[in-house]
Design a protein around this nucleic acid. Structure first.
Lengths: 151, 151
DNA sequence: GCGGAATACTTGAAGGCTCAACTAAGTTGT
DNA sequence: ACAACTTAGTTGAGCCTTCAAGTATTCCGC
């Protein structure tokens, strides 16, 4: 309340509401079509797009902005489901590599277009091309200032 | 991937990243300053702004876009913490009213300005006034089409 | 090359969220 | 007035995330 202008406050609440609903929709969609939470699916996609489809836990966590603990639990669960497997680096035996399996690749290929459809239906079908550019610029500006104190 | 333009995909990922980090920051802030998750704090704020500081479970859930189940768990926990109390309606004995307590009011008043500072630091300090308007319009358009199939 | 600090990740407990099943109370049709 | 249906909310199990603490390995200074 105090400290934000009316416009800021209204935009803030609208943003929180929009993301609450988007996240909910995406999570239900991931669960339905892929049998996993959306947060897990994002990890699979990142691996899928990585050359070799393999990353160390730390690198994966950093790119996803997940805590290492969260990722450890997630990877353990996804390994049980067969979408990926872990292997210790021989080079530095503290690091664990996470490798996407064939089953994981198939799952990404299956879920990906369904996800895109959902995102278009929920978000982009309602926005102009100009608004997409604006949204990109706005969110990029916010992401920019992460973990840097404040302006 | 398929089905989204490059611009859409880039904006989408940026949005997911921005909201992931914003939610995380707000949650840590709510936990630190108010001793509760941000989702709980939002319920307190809504009650705070409601005349009489009292709402039925269903009305509260609808405005927050929470499931009734989620809200039941949340309210049970917040009642234990003393921020609100429940009372059955005598009019229709299925409905439960949720009333903010004095302790809840104090908590909202304490957390609110700290929250605003956090939001400004993380988000609005990086945006122009024009971008705030744009963000409002964009998120409003997304929220607009909720629970309506698709365009 | 040894002791201490740093790095990379894991673990377990506690709490929040979802989903499906359930209870209780009001409404409707006949 | 009674059965069937609907509405309002609760419950419990299971999974996900966080947080604090722990393990294992490597790096650094001397």
């Amino acid at each position: 309340m105090s400290g934000l202008t009316d416009e800021q406050q209204h935009a803030w609440r609208s943003l929180m509401l929009a993301t609450l609903v988007l996240d909910g929709a995406l999570d239900r969609q991931s669960q339905r079509d892929g049998g996993m939470p959306h947060a897990y699916y994002k990890a699979l996609v990142l691996l899928y797009e990585t050359p070799g489809r393999r990353l160390a836990m730390g690198a994966l966590a950093a790119q996803l902005r997940y805590s290492l603990s969260r990722l450890t639990h997630a990877v353990a669960s996804m390994e049980k489901s067969g979408w990926l497997r872990r292997s210790r680096s021989t080079d530095d035996r503290r690091v664990q590599f996470v490798q996407l399996t064939d089953a994981g690749i198939q799952t990404v290929r299956h879920v990906s277009p369904l996800q895109a459809t959902e995102v278009r239906a929920r978000a982009f079908s309602r926005l102009t091309a100009e608004q997409v550019q604006q949204l990109d610029a706005i969110t990029a500006a916010i992401v920019q200032g992460l973990d840097s104190p404040t302006s």
